[in-house]
């Protein structure tokens, strides 16, 4: 996945069974973002792999004051990349089991 400056990781073990998964997101490289996020912490949230859209969560983070609108696209892409990796691993685990 491209280094967007925003890191997204699993906030819990993924057993591959639940649709909803806890993720944790934080700014790792401030220079890659347009807004100023010097003292920002890590943001943990739940994401439904089947129903939800990464860009919508990113917009909610902007509306909650975590990010500037100008960084919504970057945040959305970072979440999308991690979600894609989680889904890919799940599919690989299932196909290996068959």
């Amino acid at each position: 996945a491209e280094d967007t400056g925003v890191r997204v990781e699993l906030a819990e073990e993924d057993d591959g069974k639940k649709d909803s998964i806890a993720l944790k997101l934080w700014v790792e490289d401030h220079k890659k973002l347009k807004g100023k996020y010097k003292e920002s912490g890590a943001i943990e949230f739940t994401f439904d792999l089947e129903k939800e859209v990464p860009e919508v969560v990113a917009q909610e983070m902007v509306e909650s004051g975590f990010f500037h609108e100008s960084d919504a696209k970057t945040v959305g892409k970072s979440i999308r990349d991690r979600v894609a990796l989680i889904k890919w691993r799940r599919e690989r685990t299932v196909s290996a089991a068959v």
Binding site: E28, I43, F45, E60, S64
Partner: peptide, 27 residues
């Protein structure tokens, strides 16, 4: 560790905590 919670109008809960220690060293 100090955490804070922000609930978005759509109902999603965001829990804010310090960036994981290991990642700070990497920076």
């Amino acid at each position: 560790s100090a955490t804070a919670q922000v609930v978005h109008s759509a109902g999603r809960r965001f829990i804010v905590s310090p960036v994981p220690e290991a990642r700070l060293k990497e920076q």
